Computed example of a mutant assay.
Amino acid sequence: MFGLSIGSFINVIIYRLPRSLSIIYPSSTCPSCGARIKFYDNIPILSYVILVGKCRECGSRISPLYPIVEFLTGVLLYLLFLKYFYYSYFLLHINEFNIGYFRDYIWGQLNYFFTFAFFIIIIISIAFIDLFHRIIPDILNILLIVSGFVANIFLLHKPIMFSLYGFIIPGLFFYFIAFFYETVKKKEGLGGGDIKLIAGIGSYLGLIGAIFTIFVGSIFALVGFMLFFVFQKLTNAKTVSYDFKIPFGPFLSLAAVYYIFYGHSLIKIYINFIKLY
């Protein structure tokens, strides 16, 4: 329920931030008629189902993006809870001798949960804004970078170099790629928003996490490009274009979230595979 409610607020960010509107005031309104949405019509997912995806006042269709974002946020935060607390609550045997250890362990896990929950909230906002508007607002990238340093230093107690390496090296790598592409092709390849995004992801996940994100995000982007091309060809073969652009932000965001849940396991499998040969 916490995740669904946060997802509802993320919808506000996705809609208002690209339009330079306040995310705090006024309260939620219908995009079509401007009518204020009552609190009982603003319950995540449930209100959309009850209203059959329409505004109560004017009957205009409400985008299914709203319940999708709410559901996605709820699921990801629930999975994050399972990642950091399932073992704690169901598998540890607690007694009077290890209660102190358990308390410290829970606080440590709580810090990890809040760190990556905040990361997921920002990254979902970035992904959907970039997907539909082809921009990544600087305020979100700056928030991502700053919170990455703060969380790693003060909550996870990691050395500042962990975030610093993750911030500088991938950011410079993307910058030089963008510079080289623009110099050779005379047009933009990677936008400034993508450069700041990978720097922000690196400030949270460190250098290894950022490298993983770049590699896996590129694979996701290639698959997305091919699927879009096939879809374009199937729908209208006469207008197939090899020069269409797809935003990179959503694929980097997807890869970064994938790293949080499975990155360390996949890296261990890769290292063990390398050792065999």
Rank of each mutant, 00 (worst) to 15 (best):
I136R: 06
I126K: 14
I169K: 09
I106M: 13
H157S: 05
F154P: 00
S163I: 05
N98H: 10
F149E: 01
Q109D: 10
L156T: 07
F176N: 06
E182W: 05
Y165H: 11
I120P: 00
I177P: 14
E182P: 04
F154Q: 04
Y101K: 04
I195M: 07
I169F: 11
L164M: 09
K185W: 09
E96R: 06
A151M: 05
N95R: 06
L144Y: 09
L155C: 08
F114G: 03
K196M: 06
F118M: 05
I106W: 02
G171P: 07
A151H: 00
I106N: 10
H133G: 06
I135M: 08
L156G: 10
I136P: 05
I139D: 08
I126C: 12
G166P: 13
L155N: 08
A117G: 05
K158W: 05
F179H: 11
I99L: 14
L190P: 14
K187S: 11
F179W: 14
Y112G: 00
K187V: 07
L144T: 00
N111E: 00
F173I: 09
Y175H: 04
H157E: 06
I122N: 03
Y175C: 00
I124A: 01
A151R: 02
Y181R: 07
I145T: 08
M161A: 11
F118W: 07
N98V: 06
G171R: 01
T115N: 13
I136E: 04
I177H: 14
Y105P: 12
A151F: 04
E188F: 14
F179C: 11
E182I: 02
F162Y: 11
L131G: 03
D104T: 04
F97N: 11
A178H: 14
I168A: 02
Y105M: 06
G193F: 01
Y101P: 03
F180D: 09
D138F: 09
